[in-house]
């Protein structure tokens, strides 16, 4: 669809640039802005200096349920719900701001960025499509991402009931040795 208004197009370009900086992929840009594919491709190359990655977006809801992604996506979703319900932002702005908060948190704690902007966007779309839901943990009272229509009355989150090797991947061990080396 072509833009009629120059102003609206300028706004779209600005929004697209922000999303590209945060790591959005073409599918997200195409669906969230009114810009043509050619313009978005050009914009992407200008901002990042490389062509956008090709191929399909990940489409499985199961990824969001595995331990580490679940914790990160639950954190993002809590931020998103705040931005949407309490601050009253429209969908896309809420996603971008919630993602910024998420990045801030990751930075402050020196953690690995598990969720990308496109993943976060996919997560919100899965929620809109009723494929996922938020379940309240019966132990800590926080809200976590869970499959839709799963029974939730006895739900216990992955942080209250941690699997034995959770968060002990190759990378975290490396960080630990780096820290020891510093001491």
């Amino acid at each position: 669809m072509r833009n009629k208004s120059v102003l609206a197009e300028a706004e779209d370009i600005q929004r697209a640039v922000e999303m590209i900086r945060l790591g959005a992929r073409m599918q997200m840009l195409e669906s969230e802005t009114q810009l043509s594919r050619e313009r978005l491709l050009k914009l992407y190359k200008e901002v990042r200096g490389v062509s956008p990655p090709k191929g399909m977006l990940p489409f499985s809801t199961d990824w969001f349920i595995t331990w580490q992604p679940n914790v990160h996506s639950s954190l993002f979703m809590s931020f998103y719900r705040f931005m949407k319900d309490t601050a009253g932002l429209p969908d896309l702005d809420a996603i971008v701001k919630a993602f910024r908060l998420y990045l801030d948190h990751i930075d402050a704690e020196d953690m690995e960025e598990v969720l990308s902007l496109t993943r976060a966007w996919t997560l919100v779309r899965f929620f809109d499509a009723d494929l996922l839901q938020q379940a309240t943990c019966t132990c800590c009272g926080g809200n976590y991402v869970a499959h839709a229509y799963d029974p939730t009355h006895e739900y216990v989150c992955g942080l209250c009931n941690m699997p034995s090797r959770a968060g002990k991947g190759r990378r975290s061990r490396r960080i630990a040795t780096d820290r020891n080396a510093l001491v």
Binding site: V71, H72, L75, R81, F82, C140, G142, L159, M162, G167
Partner: peptide
């Protein structure tokens, strides 16, 4: 908790759901 990073994630998730 088990380690600082997970504890802070957990706290952030709960805190984000608190009323303002």
């Amino acid at each position: 908790g088990r380690d600082a990073a997970t504890a802070s994630l957990h706290a952030a998730i709960i805190a984000a759901g608190k009323p303002v």
